[in-house]
Design a binder for these strands. Sequence first.
DNA 1: TTGTAAGCGTTATCAT
DNA 2: ATGATAACGCTTACAA
Lengths: 342, 342
Amino acid sequence: MTNRITIADIARAAGVSPSTVSRALNHNPGIPENTRLMIERIARDLNYRLDVRARNFRLQRSQTVATLFPYQHASHRQIADPFYMEILAAITDELDQHGYDSLIARVHVENDDWCNRYVLDKRVDGILLIDRALDDIGIRRLHALGAKVVVWSAALDEPGYVSVGCDGTAGAADAVRHLLAVGRRRIGFIGGFEHMVETHFRQGGYRLALTEAGLPVDEQLIAFTDFTPEAGGQAAQRLLEQAPALDGLLVCSDYMAAGVMDVLRQGGRRVPDDVSVVGYDDVPLAAHYAPRLTTIHQPIHQGGRLMVQKLLALIDGEPVTSTVLPHQLIVRDSSVLANPSV
Amino acid sequence: MTNRITIADIARAAGVSPSTVSRALNHNPGIPENTRLMIERIARDLNYRLDVRARNFRLQRSQTVATLFPYQHASHRQIADPFYMEILAAITDELDQHGYDSLIARVHVENDDWCNRYVLDKRVDGILLIDRALDDIGIRRLHALGAKVVVWSAALDEPGYVSVGCDGTAGAADAVRHLLAVGRRRIGFIGGFEHMVETHFRQGGYRLALTEAGLPVDEQLIAFTDFTPEAGGQAAQRLLEQAPALDGLLVCSDYMAAGVMDVLRQGGRRVPDDVSVVGYDDVPLAAHYAPRLTTIHQPIHQGGRLMVQKLLALIDGEPVTSTVLPHQLIVRDSSVLANPSV
DNA sequence: TTGTAAGCGTTATCAT
DNA sequence: ATGATAACGCTTACAA
């Protein structure tokens, strides 16, 4: 612990200069094979360990990427959404494979102080953002600072903006068309906050599919709230009161959907007999809900890895473009009627 | 971006030496109020930002803590367990409040290479481990290296070991006693891997409560597997085949329990009418399962914050002891019979 | 092929 | 009260 082995120690033991050791350890082509082998052996014998901190400092980089989860509510409420853990695991594993460290934090969307902390303070080489606001002050700031950023969101037409995500409009529209196909007519929508990108586009898809079918859009059937089962449940309660004839529901996350179905049952509505429910994300748990949840599958794992790959390319100065991942409607039990009356 | 403002720039602008600037910015008592104010003003005018990397290097610290999730299966399967996100959020927030960065990774329990990466490479000042093996090679190594570590686990009698967690024996015993109280006699146990500490103690509590009640322990009713709904479901399937008379089940995580109840239903067993189920953790979602899940509540959020506080104390060289957090049986619908036949 | 020396930005020691 | 200087461990011109 106390006396750390440094490159200088190896140099002394090997009878060469520190620069030679550094070069050998970094596989610099100028160093002959046998010299390198000799130095590597000594390094191993001495239990040498590169001081990453020193190297990063010297190289003016941090070899670290921050994954940031924007939150919005003043209540600062916990987000235990499996979707987050899922994408986080993918990101972390991929980062790990490239020798990068993975730093995480939750940041407030209406604030951009965290940009200083991560970018100006040079804590990280790049930033991964999970969802964003329509007009995101933080992203604007990051852009102005020239930071490397990749966002999980729908593709957006902003200069220099790189995103990975599904087409929320299409996904939500598919969900609503499915609800229409199983005979639903009074279809509600429960989203996250209205000005967050994911919710914004999904709401658009919801309206689109309804209009397409010649159905009116009833604002009494639309609610925005936190991405938690409790909040989702409360929203469902509100919708039920405002529009008792409600017979279908698109909920913007599987996590919320659990709370929604719970409230529906408590209100005496059977799922799917009285109300069909479609979730979003297809987290592993959704297949085990009772009833098993119909949902829009997003390739979360693949998306997480892709975000990392794009970010590292960005850091390496390569040109990078956004990717729209395919979504897929997964029909399970929460939406289809056992005895269709239509 | 290009020309970063350093302490030297401020020194020049203020007509003092870099040391004075450093001292002023660090509120060194030797610097008079007005000198400090003057320097602070100039720093602000120049948009100065401390280079954290340089400071950490100089101070030989990293101001970063790693939260590590041991995994075990070769399959490297995803863990989207809400319990993890829950404790991670608590840890991250608390770390943030103390100015520490939060780094996360998943590490294999049968391997201790990651100790090099995090400790020897000086990437972090301390480590938070979420669960551990009974005889944990990584923890032994960390101990040998003199690393600062706090583990989420039951209290263990190892010298220098600091943990935060609930009493798994007592928790599981409470769960089983509850199952017995509602009239169950053929009670099964589904845990994580047998030699992981949390599962180990809970299994002990399970056996204890059964023995207490004068009931035999049937190995056919015990299964160990991954902490996922799929694995939990498969284990339930196995138990059902080995012991069809099964009428109660203690499942070591709420996340697994969802898969378990799903399989039970598919096998034609009603929950709770035919089989009573008790989960573990009390993640927010558990209250919204259908049926709402009876479970052992663990103060996850409080535990996460406490782990951080203990670790920081350890880093500061203060003496620290383990804490056993209170657990609580939360009775919901998955265990109690509507029409008790007993 | 290898060594010398400078420097990344900060803070601590030792002067004055 | 403040300045000069060294040092943290590494990499990289530049020289030889």
